[in-house]
C-alpha cells in the first residue's frame, strides 16, 4: 500500500466524469486508455426506488502489485519512497502482461504509443506538493487525496455519517 490514499466519497459523486477527462488531459492520452474511470453501478430498485452509484476506479497501488511481478522488463515499478506503482515508459515494450495480471484492470493500453498507461497518482505533481489531476477538478469535491494517516480520520468520520444515514437513503 502506498503512503497515499485517494478516497472517493461515492455518495457525493454525480458521475460527471470530469476526473477522467482531467486525468487524460494531464497525461495527454488518446481515445482508449483510462487510468482512472467512473464506473456506474446500477440503477437497481431498492424499496421501489431506482438507485445507483458511481464508483471511482483508479489504481489501488497494491502493496504487492501483480503488475510489477508480471512485468518482464522492469518497466512497472513500485517507488520505494512512497509505494506509488508506475510505468517507466522507456522500459515498457508493450507486452501487456500487467494488463492481464492486474485483478482490478488498472493498467491501460495506449494504442498510439504501443505502451501501457497507468494511474501513478500524478507523482510528478505530488512531488511538487500538488494534488493528482483528478482531484483538482472534481466538481462535487468527492475526491480526497492525502497521506494514509490523514485519511483514516476522514474515513472514520464518513463511516459514522453513512451509518447514521443508512435508514433514509444510500445517497
Amino acid at each position: 500500500m502506498s503512503q497515499y490514499y485517494l478516497f472517493q466519497d461515492s455518495k457525493k459523486c454525480i458521475g460527471c466524469h470530469a476526473c477522467e477527462i482531467q486525468c487524460k488531459t494531464n497525461k495527454d492520452l488518446p481515445e482508449g486508455p483510462k487510468p482512472c474511470q467512473i464506473i456506474q453501478v446500477g440503477p437497481k430498485f431498492i424499496n421501489n426506488l431506482p438507485k445507483m452509484s458511481f464508483i471511482f476506479m483508479p489504481c489501488f497501488h497494491c502493496e504487492n502489485p501483480w503488475c510489477v511481478s508480471a512485468c518482464p522488463t522492469g518497466a512497472m515499478q513500485q517507488r520505494a519512497s512512497d509505494g506509488i506503482v508506475f510505468v517507466q515508459k522507456d522500459l515498457c515494450v508493450g507486452c501487456k502482461t500487467c494488463v492481464s495480471a492486474c485483478p482490478w484492470g488498472a493498467p491501460q493500453w495506449n494504442p498510439d504509443t504501443g505502451k501501457v498507461e497507468k494511474c501513478d497518482y500524478c507523482k510528478d505533481r505530488v512531488d511538487q506538493g500538488l494534488e493528482p489531476a483528478c482531484v483538482t477538478t472534481c466538481t462535487t469535491g468527492c475526491l480526497k487525496f492525502g497521506k494514509v494517516e490523514e485519511m483514516t480520520q476522514i474515513r472514520r468520520q464518513r463511516h459514522a455519517e453513512s451509518v447514521a444515514s443508512l435508514e433514509n437513503s444510500s445517497f
Partner: peptide, 13 residues
C-alpha cells in the same frame, strides 16, 4: 474493473 467496482466498494447500492 467493473467487477471490482461492484465488489470492493462499500457504498454500492
Amino acid at each position: 474493473r467493473r467487477l471490482s467496482a461492484k465488489n470492493h466498494v462499500p457504498t454500492r447500492p
